[in-house]
Nucleic acid binder design. Sequence first.
DNA 1: CTAATATTCAACCATATGGTTGAATATACC
DNA 2: GGTATATTCAACCATATGGTTGAATATTAG
Lengths: 108, 108
Amino acid sequence: MVEYTYPLDSVFNSLADPIRRDIIARVARREYSVGELVAHHNVSFAAISKHLKVLEEAYLIRKRKEGRKQMVSLAPETLKSADEYLGQYRSMWQSRYNKLEAVLKEEV
Amino acid sequence: MVEYTYPLDSVFNSLADPIRRDIIARVARREYSVGELVAHHNVSFAAISKHLKVLEEAYLIRKRKEGRKQMVSLAPETLKSADEYLGQYRSMWQSRYNKLEAVLKEEV
DNA sequence: CTAATATTCAACCATATGGTTGAATATACC
DNA sequence: GGTATATTCAACCATATGGTTGAATATTAG
């Protein structure tokens, strides 16, 4: 368990791993049990369980008990915070496109 | 040096550290020399140099030699890729807001 | 050439990460 | 109750990370 100084630390850290991004992609579509998620990766049950812990501590997923299964779903509000962070910089890569767009409008 | 499987790994990993996010925020506004960036943090010159290496390998910054200084600037196109990744999920947190918005419109 | 400035490199350290295996726990099935 | 299923926990391991200090490498100034 790591102590994160800022919420964005744990969110971006979660997103920095391809297995965790795959889990996010899946649980964004529907609920998955832990075992179902394990079935899609070549790592152990315990490894997936650890990835889920990372995602849960970042508030990116939620787990719900259903009998002996744990059903995992996405907590999309947390992704919003990451998106808002990037939003600060959006104009910087759009500016080039906007210039082009402006030029095209003039030309036509 | 780490080998990243996917470009998003190194981008999100870069963003997962508050010092690196601060560097990004600064160099988004103007060029900074490495020494100037060091002056804003309580860590050694070498530590900042390492953070810059992480950011450079993720293609988030560029360095330009100016005499004995290295001038650092943002490479915003790379942030765009992270933004596009999050864009996949944007409707998921907007939908809730949109529902609320819809309800409010009905109520009023 | 020498000295000062700016930065990186190398070696080191403590802790974190991502994986493993095997035991422990909880729930469901018969 | 006993067995099977689902998941987590604990211990362990190799490597990565983020920091340090001190030496090495430019480049500029005198």
